[in-house]
């Protein structure tokens, strides 16, 4: 947990889940599990968010919504797919209106299994996501330096 030096804000979107994972995501925020003690807050605004929690799989109708939320989030950002539906389609994989997991549309960093995913597993997933977030941030910080190095080599 050493990388919880900043307070990550999450945004949650219900793809086409059965509400099971949704209410477990909400349960994480309430007194029993209370992720707010780590500074994790649920926000409704994509531009405030660091971590994107998606429950349920994508379909024709919500594909643009998922993409729009992802695109609006500032870099660095992490996507956590919650539950088996968001991972692969799960029990609904054979349904005609299911295109598959969230990773068919946007890059996913952490997968949380389960049907429905337990709050402990969701918190674990978010904590793993924090690690990824720290790595991405570090990579972003390095980028200007790397670019300068390349430029120097080219000039030489």
């Amino acid at each position: 947990m050493s990388y919880v030096t900043k307070s990550p804000w999450i945004i949650h979107y219900d793809g086409s889940s059965c509400n099971g994972c949704d209410i477990e995501v909400l349960a994480c925020l309430t007194p029993m599990y209370d992720v707010e003690r780590f500074g994790i807050i649920n926000t409704g605004n994509p531009k405030h968010a660091d971590i994107f929690l998606v429950t349920g799989s994508v379909n024709e109708q919500n594909i643009t919504v998922v993409k729009l939320i992802y695109e609006q989030m500032p870099e660095p950002k992490v996507v956590v797919a919650i539950g088996i539906c968001a991972t692969s389609g799960g029990i609904f994989k054979e349904c005609y209106n299911i295109m598959g997991g969230i990773d068919t549309v946007i890059p996913v960093d952490v997968y949380v299994p389960g049907c429905a995913a337990r709050p402990e597993a969701i918190i674990d997933g978010v904590v793993k996501g924090l690690g990824v977030l720290a790595e991405k941030r570090a990579a972003m910080d390095q980028k200007p330096a790397v670019a300068a190095e390349v430029k120097e080599k080219e000039e030489a």
Partner: peptide
């Protein structure tokens, strides 16, 4: 509506 339509009634065939 239609954002979370899965079509699970059709799974009856499978």
């Amino acid at each position: 509506i239609g954002f979370i339509h899965r079509g699970l009634e059709k799974l009856v065939e499978k």
